[in-house]
Design a protein around this nucleic acid. Structure first.
Length: 256
DNA sequence: ATGACTGAGCATCTCAGA
């Protein structure tokens, strides 16, 4: 089973990139983040022509997530359970396929909106931990893939790529990420690449890509049963070198 | 010479991204 996640920074700007990538890599399931549109504007027919069905949790201008799959699946949640009902940000989709639960997330960045914006990020992470804990308790095989907006350790960002105190590296952010791992989840990339830079994002500014000044913020966390099946996990750096790329590249995970 | 990004939208500027 081949799973993938990709923050595309506008699905309409990246329609051709995504279609070409699907045809080259042929993942079973691809989660998208920052589609930046509502469902009627989503180019579903393009991906359908490549053999992929789409489910969309859209929002105008900002955020927005979706899933593309060439295997049968059912959507089970379109919002993160446990958040206040008035929360309307499109950041979560959960599906079931082949006896496993797969979750695609776009975790809040936390640098905008001052203290309230950062508090929202932490509340979101607390709710995500509760959801993961419930699935662990139910002994359900599951994976969480997406843009976590977390650099888990100092090895996960290039020196100078982030200001001190950034929401991606604050201790409160990292402690919540660690609390996910301590439920028994496996960070798929670090399980296979234990140290050193494994960037998934390069800023558009200041020559971050040519200087290889990146971040590792797109992750795949595996429940114990799925971690036993881990074969490969890596970002697809090649995509960042294309014309008009997203600032994130796809992360691909292969399970036996 | 003294710069240097991208996308969406009630748009020619603001917000958000990270």
């Amino acid at each position: 089973m081949k799973l993938a996640t990709w923050n595309v920074n506008s699905v309409r700007q990246r329609e051709t990139h995504i279609r070409d990538w699907l045809e080259r890599v042929r993942p079973d399931v691809l989660f998208l983040q920052e589609i930046k549109c509502e469902a009627p504007a989503f180019p579903a027919l393009t991906f359908q022509a490549a053999g992929y069905a789409a489910e969309i949790v859209g929002q105008k201008s900002y955020n927005g997530v979706a899933v593309l799959a060439r295997v049968p699946f059912t959507v089970t949640h379109r919002a993160l359970p446990g958040l206040p009902a008035e929360d309307a940000q499109a950041r979560y989709i959960e599906i079931e396929t082949g006896g496993v639960t797969l979750i695609g997330i776009y975790l809040p960045n936390g640098n905008s909106g001052a203290e309230a914006g950062y508090a929202y990020k932490l509340a979101w992470m607390d709710a995500l931990r509760a959801r993961a804990a419930a699935l662990i308790e139910a002994d359900r095989p599951f994976a969480i893939l997406g843009d976590f907006n977390v650099c888990p350790t100092d090895e996960d960002f290039a020196k100078g790529a982030l200001p001190a105190g950034d929401a991606l590296v604050r201790p409160e952010t990292r402690s919540r990420y660690r609390s996910l791992l301590w439920l028994g989840l496996t960070d798929a990339i670090r399980a296979l690449h234990p140290s050193g830079p494994v960037w998934t994002f390069w800023d558009y500014q200041a020559g971050a890509w040519p200087r290889d000044q990146g971040l590792r913020i797109d992750h795949a966390l595996l429940s114990p049963a799925l971690a036993e099946r881990l074969i490969a996990a890596a970002p697809d750096r090649e995509e960042r070198g294309r014309a008009q790329p997203s600032d994130h590249v796809p992360v691909v995970v292969e399970l036996a």
